[in-house]
Amino acid sequence: SEEKKKAKERLERLGASSELARELLDRANGNAEKAERLLRKLL
């Protein structure tokens, strides 16, 4: 979806690899905010 694509791009801008961004979104069930929080914990 367009929303998921935007979320993935945002995670990548924050420093996630394409693969990591995809994994985070999967774990967050597509929830962009939750995926971002997970990423911030990792960085």
Rank of each mutant, 00 (worst) to 15 (best):
S1H: 11
S1M: 12
S1R: 11
S1W: 12
E2P: 09
E2T: 10
E2A: 12
E2V: 11
E3Q: 10
E3G: 10
E3K: 10
E3C: 13
K5E: 12
K5D: 12
K5Q: 13
K6E: 10
K6S: 11
K6D: 09
K6P: 06
K6F: 09
K6R: 13
K6M: 12
A7E: 04
A7R: 05
A7H: 07
A7W: 10
A7N: 07
A7Q: 06
A7F: 09
K8G: 07
K8A: 12
E9G: 06
E9K: 09
E9F: 05
E9S: 09
E9L: 10
R10E: 04
R10A: 06
R10D: 04
R10S: 05
L11V: 01
L11R: 01
L11W: 04
L11Q: 00
L11A: 01
L11N: 00
E12P: 02
E12N: 04
E12D: 02
E12M: 15
E12L: 13
E12T: 09
E12W: 04
R13V: 06
L14T: 01
L14A: 05
L14R: 03
G15W: 04
G15H: 02
G15Y: 03
A16C: 09
A16P: 01
A16F: 03
A16G: 03
A16D: 01
A16I: 07
S17M: 03
S17V: 03
S17Y: 04
S17H: 04
S18V: 07
S18Q: 09
S18A: 14
S18L: 06
E19Q: 11
E19K: 11
E19D: 11
E19I: 07
E19R: 11
L20Q: 07
L20W: 05
R22P: 00
R22W: 12
R22C: 13
R22Y: 09
E23H: 13
E23M: 14
E23Q: 14
E23G: 04
E23N: 08
E23D: 09
E23L: 15
E23W: 15
L24S: 01
L24W: 03
L24A: 02
L25R: 02
L25A: 04
L25I: 06
L25H: 01
L25N: 00
D26V: 11
D26Q: 13
D26S: 12
D26R: 15
R27A: 10
R27E: 07
R27T: 06
A28C: 14
A28I: 02
A28R: 01
A28S: 09
A28E: 04
N29V: 04
N29Q: 10
N29S: 08
N29Y: 07
G30H: 05
N31C: 04
N31H: 06
N31M: 03
A32E: 08
A32S: 08
A32D: 04
E33W: 13
E33L: 13
E33T: 09
E33K: 13
E33F: 12
K34T: 12
K34Q: 14
K34C: 14
K34Y: 15
K34I: 15
A35L: 06
A35E: 01
A35Y: 02
A35H: 00
E36W: 08
E36D: 02
E36N: 03
R37S: 11
R37D: 12
R37M: 14
R37C: 13
R37V: 08
R37I: 10
R37H: 10
L38E: 08
L39Y: 11
L39I: 00
L39N: 00
L39C: 02
L39K: 01
R40A: 07
R40H: 09
K41T: 09
L42N: 01
L43Q: 08
L43M: 10
L43K: 06
